[in-house]
Simulated assay, not measured.
Amino acid sequence: MFGDLALLSPFPPGWGATLLWGFWNSLQVAVGGFGFGLLLGIGGAFGKLYGGPVTRDLLACYTTIIRAVPELVLIVLLYYAGGDLLNAVLALVSLGPVDISGLVAGIFVIAVVQGAYSTEVLRGAIRAVPEGQLEAARAYGMSPFLMLRRITLPAMLPHAIPGLSNLWLIATKDTALLAVVGFAELTLATRQAAGTTKAYFLFFTAAGLLYLALTLGSNFLIRRIEKRARRGLTRMPA
């Protein structure tokens, strides 16, 4: 048993460094994908609520397709087709092809998936803002940007945090799906280590503990953020 634990050492012949590097890659993709997906979600939510008919229809197609197709299929499709499409566009403008790194492609794929779900979470949060607050802001002559910063964002944040926190945890787990396209994240690194040493239980348990540690740390930060966002709100009577 203790001899097997030596396989987790970060020094050869241990595979600990490989697992930690895979975990770092997973974390980078999750943070980047969630962040860019959140930006897509903000634009999509306001587009659905305040955009024209064409904008709303295009966004409805985007969110419907992404939420309907299994994420594994989307990852394979976007990972390979995204690079081909970009190089095809570059060829049309007489530019040479580019070699997209696995990290950038992984962030792009997760961001596209996250953007569709973030759009609906944020749209619901914006609609939860009491209309009376917005009418009062307009009556005071606030500009749209000032109303967004002083009224809409602070009021919608408590409604959006639970949904966004779930999306963040989903993003951390979706990175494991990138193993099917050969991206060196934690799951692929675990498979390589376990396949070489035949210590499957040891390495997959270690990977599970790394994911668990990430989840526990995320939950701690999310609770702090949610507590701060709800500061000053009046609690409804039981």
Rank of each mutant, 00 (worst) to 15 (best):
D4R: 15
A6M: 15
P10L: 12
P10H: 10
G14E: 10
G16C: 13
A17T: 07
T18I: 13
L20A: 06
L20K: 02
G22A: 10
W24R: 15
N25R: 15
S26P: 10
F34S: 10
G35W: 14
G35C: 11
L39Q: 06
G44C: 00
F46N: 10
F46E: 04
L49Y: 06
G51C: 09
T55F: 14
T55Q: 14
D57S: 13
L59H: 10
L59Q: 12
Y62P: 03
Y62W: 08
T64L: 15
I66G: 01
A68F: 12
P70F: 03
V76W: 05
V76Q: 04
L78P: 08
Y79T: 01
Y80N: 11
Y80Q: 08
N87P: 02
A88K: 15
A88R: 15
L90G: 06
L90R: 14
A91C: 00
V93T: 14
V93M: 14
S94P: 02
P97Y: 02
P97Q: 07
I100G: 01
S101C: 07
G102I: 07
V104S: 14
I110F: 01
V113F: 02
A116M: 13
Y117C: 13
T119Y: 06
L122Y: 01
G124I: 11
A125D: 04
A125S: 10
I126K: 10
R127P: 00
A128K: 14
A128T: 12
V129P: 01
P130A: 11
E131I: 09
Q133T: 12
Q133L: 14
Q133M: 13
L134I: 12
A137V: 11
A139Y: 01
G141Y: 03
F145K: 12
L146I: 00
L146S: 12
M147E: 13
M147R: 15
R149F: 01
I151D: 04
T152D: 01
T152W: 00
P154D: 09
A155M: 11
A155P: 09
M156S: 06
L157K: 13
P162H: 08
G163H: 08
S165N: 09
N166C: 02
N166L: 10
L167F: 00
I170E: 11
I170Q: 14
I170S: 14
T175S: 01
A179S: 15
V180P: 05
F183Y: 03
A184F: 04
E185C: 05
E185R: 06
L186K: 07
T187F: 14
A193G: 04
A193W: 00
K198I: 01
A199M: 03
F201C: 00
F203D: 02
F203G: 05
F204L: 05
T205A: 13
T205N: 09
A206V: 09
A207P: 04
L209P: 04
L209F: 02
L209V: 07
L210N: 05
L210R: 06
A213M: 08
L214E: 03
G217R: 02
S218N: 02
N219W: 00
N219A: 06
L221A: 11
L221I: 11
L221Q: 06
I222R: 11
I225M: 08
E226I: 04
E226Q: 08
A229C: 09
R230D: 02
R230F: 03
G232H: 03
M236D: 01
M236L: 12
M236I: 08
M236P: 00
